[in-house]
Design a protein around this nucleic acid. Structure first.
Length: 596
RNA sequence: GCCGGCGUAGCUCAGUCGGUAGAGCAACUCACUUGUAAUGAGUAGGUCGUCGGUUCAAAUCCGACCGCCGGCUCCA
């Protein structure tokens, strides 16, 4: 976002705060920043409000904008600031935090202690703020401003703190830009995987089955089979071996792994059987560690790469569930690599290389690699308490990524409980951020499981473990791919690859022969033999985003041909059946993104 | 889990002030036999999310619960 737009949005947030204070006296103010597509402000209101209250607030804001009030900066020392904001407890807390150096103005820890703070005043409203702002409220285009929604948001983002009411709004430099933005929001909804998943009959979520427990329809089944075939092929080529492990495990294993101490709140409660407590597994790693330890390992066996499309259950909070992207049962493209320390960089980057191959195959280009590290505060709570090994493994990852020339951003406080990781961050159609794939280091579980191998010198040595899931889980991957391709999958993934459209009933028999032949050759082909016009069938096939539409009439039946139309509407004209079959098999076999 | 909203046919939605529910598409049947994005006619389909309350009467008002949606927290 450019500076001007940022200033406009931040200024609009101040104006919203003024309007809310005027309409709801006694309101306490939280933070009110500009964000990617607009702004928000967090309030503790004297009474609850709903979206029905937004028009009144918006109207008040617009009246303020017309006043063309200048934004004026002032610098106050800490005591003066405390006095000025004495009736605003959240502001006083922030002033104290700034003064103590606990937090800089962005809320990041570890800043220098501030001797003074700045405020911005327009009209009757003054806010603690570092700016910058528009020159005056008249710069904010009245017709490019809109309040959007209301949400609860915890003070400072901590669920133990009071929950404030957040009002989201947006403002642009012109009405046209606002209208474009609102149009983009509508367009994004059309490629939402939940909508496409229903329209294309990929999956369902059934109230009686339970929240976050998707059921895959046959079309979804095809997607999963193809993704799994891809993973097996790539992993075979990269030296992985496949294993299989059960859905449930006794308590003792998860105590040993550290899941119960560190991860219990994301696990389903235990079931009691014959005096033992069993848990549904949230991750596959402990069982894979058992497989590593099951036989004596030599350095000659390493790296050992154990792969499994493991079945995991996580008790995500009900409000966190989101279509296929966040579920309670998932099948993960999981593997654990047992690696001597000196081979760490090579193996870790081997996984990164696998990521990049997949991204190329799917033409995924909008992602960020996030280097997720621990935070000192989390040690012993969120993270295994071993500062030395955190420092060491984080440096190993950082060095490997830099050597590999891979761009990444480093974010503290996002690590797994057992070690640092590289996460691939992507965005859903409606703009929500998710981790798609992950590549994690684990120094903690090898210790806990006492994993070892015999090195060249005949001594016992502990391997490092790399956990990785480049193809994410089936659930999140399919959700992401639905949105990424807007349902128009490459031919190799498409549940139906070709739809045969007989022009008249007399062509159905030939169509059946064609379908039988193409299906026998490994393609997924269907016939639309409904009593409908050809045009209707073409339209339906195209709406189902089926890659190839094969129209069959007298000419084709006579010439053993098919007339090929792509879902884009492009007409490849009639061609001999063998020609089409060769084309389709080539496109599918190469996992091509193109259809011709 | 928390804050706010929503829940009517398979889907998208209408239903005014409380008076026993409607459209389009889809499905099914029949007719048409069509040359590259919707042929026509007909039939069938709903305990209005669930349970309780108010009322002569509830899709409509009230409450609880379930589910979904937008956020927060959290995450593959």
């Amino acid at each position: 976002m450019d500076e001007k737009l940022h200033a406009l949005r931040h200024s609009a947030a101040h104006v919203m705060a003024q309007a809310v204070l005027e309409l709801y006296p006694g309101t306490k103010l939280g933070f009110g920043p500009a964000i990617d597509d607009g702004f928000y402000y967090d309030f503790q209101l004297p009474r609850p409000i709903t979206t029905d209250d937004l028009p009144a607030i918006e109207a008040r804001m617009k009246a303020i904008l017309h006043g063309k009030h200048a934004f004026q900066r002032a610098e106050l020392d800490i005591d003066a600031a405390r006095a000025q904001f004495s009736d605003q407890p959240f502001k006083v807390e922030q002033i104290n935090a700034l003064a103590a150096g606990e937090m800089d103005e962005h809320g990041n820890a570890g800043a220098n202690a501030a001797a003074s703070v700045s405020t911005y005043t327009h009209a009757t409203f003054t806010d603690l703020c570092r700016g910058p702002h528009a020159a005056d409220t008249g710069e904010i285009p009245v017709d490019a401003l809109k309040l959007l929604s209301i949400a609860g948001a915890y003070w400072r983002g901590n669920e133990k703190n009071p929950q404030l009411t957040r009002i989201y709004g947006t403002v642009w430099e012109s009405k046209k830009e606002l209208d474009d933005y609102l149009w983009r929001l509508e367009e994004a909804k059309k490629r939402d995987h939940r909508k496409l998943g229903k329209e294309l009959e990929i999956f369902i979520l059934d109230e009686e089955v339970g929240p976050g427990l998707p059921l895959w329809l046959p079309n979804g089944g095809v997607l999963i089979e193809e993704l799994e075939a891809l993973a097996k092929e790539m992993e075979h080529n990269a030296g992985y071996v496949r294993v299989r492990t059960p859905h449930i495990t006794k308590e003792a294993l998860f105590l040993k792994s550290g899941h119960l101490p560190y991860y219990a709140e994301s696990m389903y409660p235990p079931m009691e059987l014959e005096g033992a407590r069993y848990y549904l597994k949230p991750m596959n790693c402990p069982m894979h560690h058992k497989l590593f330890a099951a036989v004596p390992r030599s350095y000659r066996d390493l790296p050992l790469r154990l792969a499994e499309y493991g079945t995991c259950y996580r008790y995500e909070k009900s409000g966190e569930l989101f279509g296929l992207m966040r579920v309670r049962f998932m099948q993960m493209n999981d593997a654990h690599l047992y690696v001597p320390e000196e081979l760490f960089e090579q193996e870790f980057m081997g996984v990164i290389d696998l990521y990049l191959k997949y991204f190329k195959l799917f033409a995924i280009d909008k992602y960020v690699m996030r280097f997720s590290t621990h935070s000192a505060e989390g040690l012993g709570k969120k993270y295994v308490d071993n500062p030395a090994l955190w420092a060491k493994t984080e440096e190993m990852v950082r060095r490997a990524m830099i050597h590999g020339g891979i761009n990444f951003v480093e974010v503290p406080g996002e690590a797994a409980f057992y070690g640092p990781k590289i996460d691939v961050q992507i965005w859903s159609a409606i703009g929500r951020e998710f981790t798609l794939a992950t590549n994690q280091v684990d120094f903690a579980q090898p210790l806990r499981f006492d994993l070892k191998f015999i090195n060249k010198h005949g001594q016992e040595e502990m391997p490092l473990v790399i956990h990785r899931a480049p193809l994410s889980t089936h659930e999140r991957m399919v959700g992401f791919l639905l949105e990424h391709f807007a349902g128009a999958f490459p031919a190799w993934l498409a549940p139906t690859q070709a739809m045969l459209v007989p022009i008249a009933d007399r062509h159905v028999e030939y169509a059946r022969r064609v379908a039988a032949q193409l299906n026998a050759e490994g393609l997924r082909v269907k016939i639309d033999d409904r009593a409908d016009r050809m045009n209707a069938k073409i339209r339906d096939a195209q709406m189902q985003k089926i890659p190839y539409i094969l129209v069959i009439g007298d000419k084709e039946a006579e010439a053993n041909a098919v007339a090929v139309r792509l879902r884009s509407g492009e007409d490849l004209k009639a061609m001999p059946l063998a020609t089409f079959s060769a084309l389709a098999k080539k496109i599918v076999g190469e996992r091509s993104l193109e259809l011709k």
